[in-house]
């Protein structure tokens, strides 16, 4: 057995040496372009070699402790029996590998050659691991919500999780309910204009048109007169004065009058007293307008009916 092993090892060693040689040949090629630049002194080379040796020897020690592994060529023959047995297997495996990975290996580092058997070893370790793993995977697991739990107090964990779930559910519901209450009455508008909205826009448009026409009518008289010029301002004032006095002449606004025109914002106060604000009894009293709102005459309501709306503007009763 030992002989055979040794023989194998020798063959292997030779092979290896050969390989090493080839690799050494390749090495400069690998260095490629940088080869010219880096010039190594003999001294330095020696130093490096020494260091490398030291490094490798360290490696060896570790390996010896950890797992059986292929040593350097120089140590091959001195190795123990067990290791050789192990190596035999490796070498077989390695050869197969080499065929496949020959190209790859060529470009690899010096150290690789030594580590490689270790990799093979790892493969074996993998096998065991795989077996263990497969056994776990093959296991039938009862269909539980929690899945496999390794700890002994499976029940306790399950309970806890269920409790949490329930708690979260309750909280979520509460939040949802609160949000729902907060959103009460909140409606997202439609992207199109439905008939009701169109109707409302129509009503509003009518109101605007009415106001603008009234403004046009009132301001048309002043047209061509620039209020900033004194002459025009005088003319405007004169007209206003006339309108004012004519307004004074009327005791109250008749119902028909207010019907025909837009309603005034003043409401009750406007319809009872003179149109011009300072002439009213309750001029600038804070709450004057709403004091006797229920004693307001009916004309304003009729106006609202007639127009379908009550448009706000102040002194539409003056005609100038």
């Amino acid at each position: 057995m030992t002989d055979v092993g040794n023989a194998v090892e020798l063959v292997r060693g030779a092979k290896r040496r050969k390989k090493m040689g080839s690799r050494n040949n390749k090495r400069p090629r690998m260095m490629g372009g940088s080869g010219n630049k880096v010039k190594i002194d003999k001294k330095m080379k020696k130093l490096f070699q020494k260091r490398a040796r030291e490094y490798n020897s360290d490696d060896d020690d570790d390996d010896g402790e950890k797992a059986p592994r292929v040593k350097k060529e120089s140590k091959i023959l001195v190795r123990s029996h067990e290791e050789e047995v192990g190596d035999e297997e490796f070498s077989e495996g390695e050869e197969e590998r080499k065929d496949v990975n020959a190209d790859v290996e060529l470009s690899e580092d010096d150290e690789n050659g030594e580590i490689q058997p270790g990799i093979t070893k790892f493969t074996e370790g993998c096998r065991a691991f795989r077996a263990a793993f497969m056994s776990i995977l093959k296991k039938n697991i009862s269909d539980e919500t929690l899945g496999p739990i390794l700890s002994a107090n499976k029940k306790l964990v399950a309970e806890k999780l269920a409790e949490e779930e329930a708690e979260r559910k309750v909280k979520g519901e509460a939040r949802k309910a609160k949000q729902l209450v907060g959103e009460k009455g909140h409606v997202k508008p439609a992207t199109y204009l439905d008939s009701h909205e169109k109707f409302l826009i129509g009503v509003a448009t009518k109101g605007v048109v009415k106001l603008f026409n009234a403004v046009n009518k009132a301001q048309h008289a002043q047209k061509g007169l620039n209020p900033s010029r004194t002459k025009d301002a005088k003319a405007i004032n004169k007209r206003r004065k006339e309108a004012f006095f004519s307004e004074l002449g009327k005791p109250t606004l008749s119902a028909t009058n207010s019907n025909a025109k837009l309603n005034t914002s003043g409401g009750a106060a406007d319809t009872e007293g003179p149109a011009w604000a300072p002439l009213r009894d309750n001029y600038m009293l804070t709450n004057s307008k709403l004091k006797d709102w229920d004693k307001m005459p009916d004309n304003m309501m009729t106006a609202a009916e007639d127009n379908g709306r009550v448009l706000e503007d102040s002194s539409s009763d003056e005609d100038d």
């Binding site: 301001q219 206003r240 003043g266 409401g267 709403l290 706000e312 503007d313 102040s314 539409s316």
Partner: peptide
């Protein structure tokens, strides 16, 4: 009506 009419300033059409 009165309330809403008075909530914004009145307009003088002149």
């Amino acid at each position: 009506t009165i309330m809403f009419q008075n909530i914004f300033p009145a307009i003088d059409i002149n």
